[in-house]
């Protein structure tokens, strides 16, 4: 196995594109190293992207933020402005693993690990984040919801790296929330995850919303019907009931060691409602 730690993104792309065997990107390593130790993957080349400064920064851009793919959860939490603008997303990234893990784990890695249960991905999708990919053929932008196709399967071409996420500018009275269900309180993987981002007008009516569910299908979902259920409402009882139903209708989960189909569908609705109410409360104060 070869280990490389280039300091430019182009060098990283070149290494990855040129590897004939199995190449893997190392960001925080909280998934990759575990998989390597337990013999799940044995890469021929590991490209460490933590030395690439572009991938390690949070910058303000176009009224929003550009977050490098290799920025850790802990760094997101300590950023001067991000936690206020995107509390739900920052929370989602900081639900991953333990305090030690959060000091290493990154949103880019969380996305590219290709798990339908990744906590930060529904947060990013709800946020309307766009990922910038860099590959042998240059740069391109993709909405986060279009990146993961199926478990361990991404829309990335050979040699392509997720470089950063653009979080759009926030109108006034906007906020977000992310909730996940786990049987414990931490150190667990989502049985269901739900991110909600919304904007209120001065009267408190929801003018825009995005709802995303994790761990209830082969990939994290953007649930447009769930968003429609609350747009134009003040999240009254009827709207929330519609939101719950839409969230449940979107679920295509499996029975596995972490939960049953029935349970996941039930809880998806509950979390969607609870997350929407938290986002609403935050938006009122934003």
């Amino acid at each position: 196995m070869r280990y490389e730690a280039p300091d430019t993104i182009d060098a990283a792309v070149k290494l990855l594109a040129g590897e004939a065997g199995l190449a893997r990107v190392l960001a925080g390593g909280t998934d990759l190293l575990v998989q390597m130790r337990s013999d799940v993957v044995s890469p021929d080349l590991v490209v460490d992207i933590k030395k690439i400064s572009e991938l390690r920064q949070v910058k303000e851009e176009a009224g929003g933020f550009r977050v490098g793919a290799a920025v850790t959860g802990a760094e997101l939490k300590e950023h001067a402005k991000l936690p206020k603008a995107w509390p739900g997303l920052v929370e989602a990234a900081n639900l991953i693993g333990s305090t030690q893990v959060q000091g290493r784990a990154t949103m880019g890695g969380n996305l590219c690990n290709g798990s339908p249960a990744a906590d930060s991905v529904p947060g990013l999708i709800a946020a309307g984040a766009t990922a910038t990919l860099v590959g042998p053929n240059g740069r391109r932008d993709l909405k986060v919801e279009d990146i993961m196709l199926a478990p361990r399967k991404l829309a990335l071409t050979k040699g392509e790296i997720v470089a950063s996420f653009l979080l759009p500018a926030r109108p006034a009275r906007s906020s977000d929330a992310y909730l996940r269900f786990i049987p414990r309180t931490e150190m667990d993987i989502a049985v269901v995850g739900c991110g909600v981002s919304l904007t209120l007008d001065p009267s408190g009516t929801c003018t825009a919303a995005r709802v995303s569910l994790g761990a209830v299908a082969a990939r994290p979902l953007l649930v447009e019907d769930a968003a429609k259920a609350i747009i134009g409402t003040k999240l009254n009882h009827a709207a929330l009931a519609k939101l719950e139903a839409a969230a449940r209708a979107a679920c295509k989960p499996i029975d596995d060691k972490r939960g049953t189909v029935e349970f996941r569908i039930d809880v998806a609705g509950v979390l969607a409602r609870r997350a929407a109410l938290i986002a609403q409360e935050r938006a009122r104060k934003a």
Binding site: P183, R184, T185, M187, K257
Partner: peptide, 24 residues
Amino acid sequence: YIYDDNGRLENPGFLDYRMPVASD
């Protein structure tokens, strides 16, 4: 312990064999 149909253990680790953590 969660076994598959072939009698193979599906959760041989602390992630999915859910002992309480301190915060529980």
